[in-house]
Design a binder for these strands. Structure first.
Length: 547
RNA sequence: GGUCCGUUGGUGAAAGGGUUAACACGUAUGCCUCUCAAGCAUAUAUGUACGGGUUCAAAUCCCGUACGGACUACCA
């Protein structure tokens, strides 16, 4: 009887589950190797949360010498976005999150795109019908919706179960008649569960979870013959031999369903690790909510690339979110890299993880402070090539000069931390390139002090580019004294009436003249790299600005 | 309404019954100093959402309340 219904519904399915079981044999991996997967649906731009979850997939597979594969979950053609898949692969690549198997890469467990696996899903569904564990349901979407509304009013459990599941036991003849009438149908699970039973599921991150057993006749095949997420997840992760399903915790409540599906299909369920969402405190309402692409620029993956956050720094940040003890470890092991750290699910946050912009920026600054000038130059050029071609051209033409500037104060034990993003370089080193240094640079000055042009003119006369740093500063001090400025800040503070100012004021004037700012890296170095001629040019610019 | 999860400082958080609740970020002040950054030093929870209970002892275990989140789609 069920055999007949199965053949009636799926006349073209001639394969059996055994066929696929043979086709996708067990992976030849060490016992503790994790097989993880990232399963995005191509419905739009990539969210930081997606990236985070893919990052977790990658690190766990990598450190256990397992496999991390990419599977495109595109069973809903209505929501598909043009170019969505290409966008996903390019974003992953851009963020150095590299699956070692899967869509666009290849592997023995494909196809890795769910829309190409319809026959596989239907084979298993046909078998389920044969075994009386699934059935066709001819209710229309409207009818199902009405039932749910009614259930909401009655305050009972929502879904198809008990007497609500009217098509549960349709006979062959009844089904045949409806089919002949051209009625459309979906395939529902004939859930064998009893909600009185409590099942316990162990989540790698959240620990033991208890649920009532699943008893809803959930739709597993839509009327167009494609599977819903639940079925696709169970069949794919079984056939692809995923060992650890790492996914957002919005899936936790589907766990009883998924476990049940694994059971009735005769599969061993994988281990689950449900990761907490990345949250943020809403500045308007003060409440904590998920990071939103609409409201938070930091939520979109593209934003990081465009604003020039180094990928390695973002990885470091994601690692600090992933394992709460990573940050401390990294601080103590600065010579090591993410690969050397052993991530564990136990150290992963259970509740929401709040996005901390200040911390990300701090990590970025530390990242840059440890980079060599030549590396910063190369990476910045790379960034500019993509997002600021004009600046890229300038960088190319001034390679040696830029590297010299980027190298200021790099040697010492206390490297500067003033760059957080590639896009900061242009502004931070605005004084470095002559063609970019215009009179307008002075208008950004915060101080409206009067600077003594004649003092600067005199200073240029005594400036000697061959001075060592100490000689240079001695000369500045002597000059200050001669011009009526104290050569010692403390001395000036004790006797402010005796002087026009102190050596710091003299330096500030020089600094403003050459950089257009009151703050800058080491002044001696800047003057030396610029050279006397350029210093003179800056004086002229400054003169024009003041007049 | 139902099911499940969470709630420690300005922020991320550590601490799975036992001295003054780690560490990091941020902020503030001081030192250093030609400025800023960095570095160093100090400060920054009258107490772990609230209320009960268990215990010699609770942030840690139990119950209740409040608040927040997820799911309750022929979306994933």
């Amino acid at each position: 009887m069920n055999e007949k219904i199965a053949d009636l519904l799926f006349p073209n399915i001639d394969k059996t589950p055994e066929y696929y079981e043979k086709m996708y044999p067990k992976r030849n991996l060490a016992a503790d190797a994790m097989v993880t997967r990232y399963g995005p649906s191509p419905t739009g731009s990539v969210h930081l949360g997606n990236l985070f979850s893919a990052f977790c997939d990658m690190i766990y597979a990598r450190q256990s010498k397992g496999v991390f594969f990419l599977r495109i979950e595109d069973t809903d053609q209505k929501r598909a976005v043009e170019g969505g898949i290409e966008n996903i692969t390019s974003v992953l690549k851009g963020f150095s999150i590299n699956p070692n198997e899967g869509y666009s890469i290849g592997g023995d467990y494909g196809p890795y795109k769910q829309s190409e696996r319809t026959e596989i899903y239907q084979t298993y569904v046909k078998d389920l019908i044969r075994r009386n564990l699934a059935y066709p349901c001819f209710m229309t979407e409207e009818e199902i919706k009405e039932i749910k509304e009614e259930q909401a009013i009655l305050k009972v459990k929502i879904g198809l179960y008990g007497h609500y599941a009217t098509d549960r036991d349709l006979s062959y003849d009844e089904i045949k008649e409806k089919l002949d009438n051209g009625e459309e149908y979906v395939i529902c699970l004939k859930s064998p569960g009893n909600p009185e039973n409590i099942i316990e599921v162990k989540d790698c991150i959240k620990g033991k979870l208890k649920f009532p057993e699943h008893n809803i006749d959930t739709i597993i095949l839509k009327k167009d013959g494609t599977p819903t997420y639940h079925l696709a997840h169970v069949i794919d992760d079984h056939l692809m031999h995923t060992t650890h399903v790492i996914r957002g915790d919005e899936w936790v409540s589907s766990l009883p369903l998924h476990i049940q599906l694994f059971e009735i299909l005769g599969f061993t369920p994988p281990k689950y690790a449900h990761i907490a969402p990345i949250t943020i405190k809403d500045s308007e309402t003060g409440t904590i909510r998920k990071l939103s692409k609409r409201k938070d620029p930091w939520a979109g993956a593209k934003f990081y690339e465009e604003s020039g956050i180094p990928i390695a720094a973002l990885h470091l940040y994601l690692a600090t979110i992933a394992n709460t003890n990573f940050e401390e470890w990294y601080l103590k092991n600065q010579d090591k890299s993410i690969e050397d750290f052993e991530f564990t699910f136990e150290k992963q946050a259970i509740g929401g993880t709040s996005f901390d912009e200040a911390k990300l920026i701090n990590i970025c600054k530390t990242y840059f402070s440890r980079k060599k000038a030549t590396e910063i130059y190369a990476e910045t050029l790379n960034y500019a090539l993509k997002f600021d071609p004009d600046y890229a051209q300038i960088l190319k033409e001034n390679k040696e000069l830029m590297i010299e500037f980027l190298n200021i104060e790099k040697d010492g034990p206390r490297p500067r931390k003033d760059i957080a993003k590639y896009s900061d370089v242009k502004e931070e080193f605005s004084y470095a390139i002559d063609s970019l240094f215009k009179q307008e640079n002075y208008s950004k000055l915060e101080s409206d002090k009067d600077y003594d042009l004649s003092l600067l003119e005199k200073y240029i006369e005594i400036y000697n580019i061959n001075d060592s740093k100490d000689e240079w500063f001695d000369r500045v001090k002597k000059f200050s004294l001669a011009e009526g400025y104290s050569d010692n800040v403390k001395e000036y503070k004790n006797n402010p009436d005796k002087y026009k100012g102190h050596v710091g004021d003299v330096c500030e004037a020089i600094r403003v003249m050459v950089t257009g700012r009151t703050k800058s890296p080491d002044l001696y170095e800047i003057l030396r790299i610029l050279g006397k001629d350029k210093i003179k040019e800056r004086l002229e610019l400054f003169r024009n600005y003041l007049n």
